[in-house]
C-alpha cells in the first residue's frame, strides 16, 4: 500500500464538500427569497415574533466558537498541544451552549402551538405558515450540522490526546475547523434573514 498523505488534496476535497453544502443551503435560501417576495407583510409579522436577543446572543456564541476553532489550528501548528486542546474544548462547549439555547427557543415556539402540522399553525396566514416552516427547517438543519461538528471536535480532541493529530499532522483538525467555519457562515446569513428583517 502506498500511503497517500496529500494534505493539499485533502483540504481541496473538504472545500469542495463545503461548496456542495453552500448549494444545499442555497436551495432553502431560494425558497426563502421567493416566498418573502410573495408574502413580505406576513414575513415581517412572523419575524417580529422571534426573539432578537436570543438570536443575537447565539450569533455571538457561534462567532466566538469559530474564533476558538481558528485559534486551535494556529496553536497545533506551533506544536502547542495543550492550548490547542483547550481551544478545541471551548469550541465544542460553545457549540453545545448554542444547541441548548436553540432547544429552549424551539420549545417556547412549540409550547405556543407554533409548529408545522398543529391546528393553530394551519390557521395562520399563508405567509406566516411558510415563514415558520422555513424557520424550523433552516434552523433545524443548521442545528444538525452544529451537532455533527461537536461530535467531530470530540473525536479530534481524542485524536490530539492519542497523538494521531499533532504538530506535523494537523489536516484532520484543519478540515474539522473548515467545516465549523462553514456552519458559522450559514448562521451568519440565517440570523438576519430570520430574526432581523421585518
Amino acid at each position: 500500500m502506498v500511503k497517500h498523505t496529500d494534505d493539499v488534496g485533502a483540504k481541496m476535497g473538504m472545500w469542495l464538500f463545503l461548496f456542495t453544502e453552500m448549494l444545499f443551503f442555497g436551495g432553502m435560501f431560494l425558497l426563502y427569497a421567493v416566498y418573502r417576495a410573495h408574502y413580505s407583510a406576513d414575513f415581517s409579522g412572523a419575524s417580529s415574533e422571534l426573539n432578537r436577543v436570543i438570536g443575537t446572543f447565539n450569533t455571538v456564541i457561534l462567532i466566538t466558537s469559530s474564533f476558538t476553532a481558528a485559534l486551535s489550528l494556529s496553536e497545533i501548528k506551533k506544536g502547542a498541544l495543550r492550548s490547542a486542546s483547550v481551544s478545541l474544548g471551548i469550541t465544542a462547549l460553545l457549540g453545545i451552549i448554542f444547541l441548548i439555547i436553540k432547544y429552549t427557543e424551539w420549545s417556547a415556539k412549540i409550547g405556543h402551538g407554533i409548529y408545522p402540522g398543529s391546528a393553530y399553525f394551519n390557521d395562520l396566514a399563508h405567509g406566516k405558515v411558510l415563514f415558520f416552516s422555513l424557520y424550523f427547517v433552516m434552523t433545524g438543519i443548521h442545528a444538525l450540522h452544529v451537532l455533527i461538528g461537536i461530535v467531530v471536535f470530540m473525536v479530534i480532541l481524542f485524536m490530539v490526546h492519542s497523538g494521531t493529530v499533532r504538530g506535523n499532522n494537523f489536516i484532520k483538525l484543519e478540515n474539522a475547523a473548515l467545516y465549523w467555519h462553514f456552519v458559522d457562515i450559514a448562521w451568519i446569513y440565517l440570523f438576519p434573514l430570520l430574526y432581523l428583517l421585518r
Binding site: 474564533f67 481558528a70 462553514f182
Partner: peptide, 10 residues
C-alpha cells in the same frame, strides 16, 4: 462577515 470568516479564519 462571511468574507472575514472565509478569508481569515478559513
Amino acid at each position: 462577515k462571511a468574507g472575514l470568516v472565509l478569508f481569515v479564519f478559513m
